[in-house]
Design a protein around this nucleic acid. Structure first.
Length: 302
DNA sequence: ATCTAATTCAAGG
DNA sequence: CCTTGAATTAGAT
């Protein structure tokens, strides 16, 4: 039950209370969504005693995720596990996933660097440590990945740092339920990045140079390319996103289908669509639903 | 084993 | 704060 008009989704208020644990080696696709009310039993996981703990080796970079404490609403009869031993494990989300979640949950669909940091720390206790390290990684991710777009502050919204938004064509990068590694990056062709360099001061630069896109189309694959129809955005010299106006960056691009592990689901955004969890009635091969969800080039390439 | 995405360190603007 | 690059780690096949 989410409350309208609330700043943050309800689940963010208790997410700092780790009560559920996932076993080592759990396939990403089988992870329950953050706002799931499933119990360990319902997902058929081994008892808590059999979980490995990685929090003790806080600096254990490289040893992979041992366990993950899923932020969850404390429930009746749900014993909360020892947070000192099992909590603070690294969440099974890449920085790109985290950033994406943060931005998408924002009403404005745009956040400053610090707001992103804050959101992550509020939600995941693990990230309240080693801030220097992961925050540097976050910055690197933002600059390096074309799916993130830097939006300069408008004079009416003074402050420090730019805003970060999702590139309108980045698609739903995690609809397949994998938050650790995308199949393909969302890479803009060189021209797109360099496009509209001059329009920077011009303000009215709504004309991003819509030509020259055949090259990258083949590079990204047919499906992805279809996303690139019409208007293409680009980054100017300073890396600011200038090809599209803010409205486009900000619009909430939700998809018609809802996947149990989609970010929308994770964030409780699509609760009314929850029914869509239904699995297609055994279609001979490749139901429309899954074809849509798992279409490699279309959903992963971002 | 390989391919490539993600993470980390870190210099330079 | 932002961008890059090189080197390393690590998912997925």
């Amino acid at each position: 039950m989410r409350m309208e008009g609330q700043e943050m989704p309800e689940w963010t208020s208790y997410c700092a209370e780790p009560v559920e644990v996932y076993p080592t080696g759990t396939a990403m696709g089988s992870l329950a969504p953050l706002n799931s009310y499933m119990t360990l039993n319902t997902v058929g996981l081994p008892p808590p005693g059999s979980y490995q703990d990685s929090s003790s080796s806080t600096g254990n970079q490289g040893s992979g995720y041992q366990a993950y404490t899923c932020p969850s609403r404390p429930r009746e009869g749900m014993k909360s596990y020892d947070r000192r031993t099992v909590g603070h494990s690294k969440p099974p989300y890449s920085y790109i996933s985290l950033i994406t979640m943060a931005i998408k949950q924002a009403p404005s669909k745009m956040l400053t660097l610090n707001e992103i940091y804050q959101w992550i720390m509020d939600l995941f206790p693990y990230y309240r440590q080693n801030q220097q390290r992961w925050q540097n990684s976050i910055r690197h991710s933002l600059s390096f990945n074309d799916c993130f777009v830097r939006v300069s502050r408008s004079p009416d919204r003074p402050g420090k740092g730019s805003f970060w938004a999702m590139h309108p064509n980045s698609g739903d990068m995690f609809e397949n339920g994998c938050y650790l590694r995308r199949q393909k990056r969302f890479k803009l062709a060189a021209q797109e990045k360099t496009a509209t360099r001059t329009a920077k001061e011009t303000e009215g630069n709504k004309n991003p140079e819509k030509e020259r896109r055949e090259g990258e189309k083949q590079e990204l694959g047919a499906c992805q390319a279809s996303f690139m129809e019409d208007r293409e955005g680009g980054r100017g010299m300073g890396g600011h996103f200038m090809g599209l106006d803010v409205d486009e960056l900000v619009r909430d691009t939700r998809y018609d289908f809802s996947h149990p592990f989609s970010i929308s689901s994770l964030m409780g955004v699509g609760e009314q669509d929850a029914m869509a969890y239904r699995i297609p009635e055994t279609s001979g091969e490749g139901s429309a639903f899954y074809q849509g969800v798992y279409s490699r080039s279309l959903l992963n390439a971002s």
